[in-house]
Every structure is written in structure tokens, then in C-alpha cells.
Amino acid sequence: MSPASGNLFFEAIVCARFHGLLPSLNGNHAGRMKRIDFDGESPAQIAKELKDTYRIE
């Protein structure tokens, strides 16, 4: 296994475990995190769509 494929394997495991935790989060946070981290959407675009401010905390 090459280092790159090892990183992809590790990333897949972490993503799968994190995805399982989403239902335990506040609905707004879970939905936004899914859209950004799993669907690849832009945080700024989501904020614009939801008429919210985009900030990193």
C-alpha cells in the first residue's frame, strides 16, 4: 500500500465514523457540516442561501 492510498483509506474511515455522528448534532449544524464536508459545497454559498453570515469559529 502506497502512502497516498494509506491516507485515502484513513480518510475514508474517519469520514465514515464522523458521518455516523451527524445525527447527534443540532439539526442546523449537522446539515451544514454534511453539505460542506461531505457534499463539497461552499460555506459562503450555504450562508448566502440561508441568509446567514459565514464565519469560522
Score class of each variant (00 low, 15 high):
55 R>T: 12
23 P>Q: 03
15 C>Y: 09
6 G>T: 08
33 M>G: 01
34 K>F: 10
1 M>S: 12
20 G>T: 05
13 I>R: 00
56 I>Q: 13
45 Q>G: 07
53 T>E: 12
44 A>G: 06
23 P>S: 03
23 P>L: 07
21 L>Q: 14
14 V>T: 08
34 K>D: 12
36 I>E: 03
25 L>H: 04
51 K>S: 13
13 I>Q: 00
55 R>A: 15
38 F>P: 02
1 M>L: 11
4 A>Q: 14
50 L>E: 14
32 R>T: 08
14 V>M: 07
19 H>L: 07
7 N>D: 08
49 E>D: 11
12 A>G: 12
24 S>F: 11
52 D>G: 03
15 C>M: 13
26 N>D: 13
36 I>L: 06
20 G>F: 02
40 G>C: 04
11 E>T: 09
22 L>K: 01
40 G>W: 06
41 E>Y: 04
49 E>L: 14
47 A>S: 07
49 E>N: 05
21 L>P: 00
53 T>S: 15
35 R>K: 12
9 F>M: 10
33 M>C: 09
17 R>F: 10
39 D>W: 05
46 I>S: 00
1 M>P: 08
45 Q>E: 14
39 D>G: 00
37 D>E: 14
14 V>G: 01
10 F>E: 08
22 L>N: 01
18 F>L: 13
42 S>H: 06
40 G>M: 04
12 A>S: 14
57 E>S: 10
7 N>L: 13
3 P>E: 14
35 R>M: 12
14 V>F: 02
57 E>A: 09
36 I>S: 01
20 G>V: 03
26 N>I: 05
37 D>P: 01
48 K>D: 10
14 V>R: 06
11 E>I: 11
35 R>S: 09
19 H>M: 05
40 G>V: 01
38 F>T: 04
23 P>V: 02
15 C>K: 15
32 R>W: 05
42 S>G: 05
21 L>Y: 13
41 E>L: 04
39 D>L: 04
7 N>H: 07
15 C>N: 15
4 A>W: 14
5 S>R: 13
5 S>P: 03
44 A>F: 04
44 A>M: 05
38 F>M: 06
12 A>H: 03
34 K>G: 01
20 G>Q: 06
44 A>Q: 08
41 E>A: 05
54 Y>P: 04
23 P>E: 01
51 K>C: 09
28 N>I: 12
27 G>Q: 15
1 M>W: 04
9 F>P: 01
33 M>K: 05
4 A>K: 15
31 G>T: 15
28 N>L: 07
11 E>Q: 12
13 I>M: 04
6 G>D: 10
9 F>C: 11
25 L>P: 00
57 E>H: 06
53 T>Y: 11
15 C>L: 13
51 K>D: 12
34 K>P: 00
48 K>Q: 13
8 L>C: 13
38 F>N: 11
52 D>T: 11
2 S>D: 10
26 N>V: 07
57 E>F: 09
44 A>W: 03
17 R>P: 00
45 Q>L: 09
47 A>W: 00
54 Y>L: 06
8 L>F: 09
10 F>I: 08
53 T>W: 08
